[in-house]
Structure formats: structure tokens, C-alpha cells
């Protein structure tokens, strides 16, 4: 059984979803890459932000 850490799961999810979003939501290769990187950063960044918020609330 594959047991990634929570963060590894977030990164894998973000990677796969960003590739699909980049290819399907933009028309030129350059814009696909930029949008994919943007989505990846938003996925991972928002997960880290929400994690810190939950950590601070739980204290």
C-alpha cells in the first residue's frame, strides 16, 4: 500500500491536476505552461496557508 505524507499527497494531486488544467484551459504551449505553474502554485500555496490557519486555530 502506498502511504504518502499529507504534503506529498497534496503535491501529487496539484501536479496532475495542474497538467490537465494547463493543457485544457489555454491554447498555446507557452500559456499552457504558465497556467499550469500558476495552478500548481495556487494548489500547494493554498494548502500550506490553510494548514497554518488550522494549526493556529487548534492552538
Amino acid at each position: 500500500m502506498f502511504r504518502p505524507s499529507h504534503f506529498a499527497a497534496v503535491v501529487l494531486f496539484a501536479l496532475f491536476a495542474s497538467v490537465v488544467f494547463g493543457i485544457t484551459q489555454r491554447e498555446t504551449p507557452r500559456r499552457m505552461i504558465r497556467y499550469g505553474i500558476y495552478c500548481f502554485a495556487l494548489f500547494v500555496g493554498s494548502a500550506i496557508l490553510v494548514s497554518w490557519v488550522m494549526f493556529l486555530i487548534a492552538r
Partner: peptide, 10 residues
């Protein structure tokens, strides 16, 4: 190929 790799991988 990229779409297939991403979806199959996930």
C-alpha cells in the same frame, strides 16, 4: 501523452 500520464497516474 501528458493528459494520459496525468490521469492514469492519478
Amino acid at each position: 501523452a501528458l493528459l494520459a500520464a496525468s490521469i492514469l497516474g492519478m
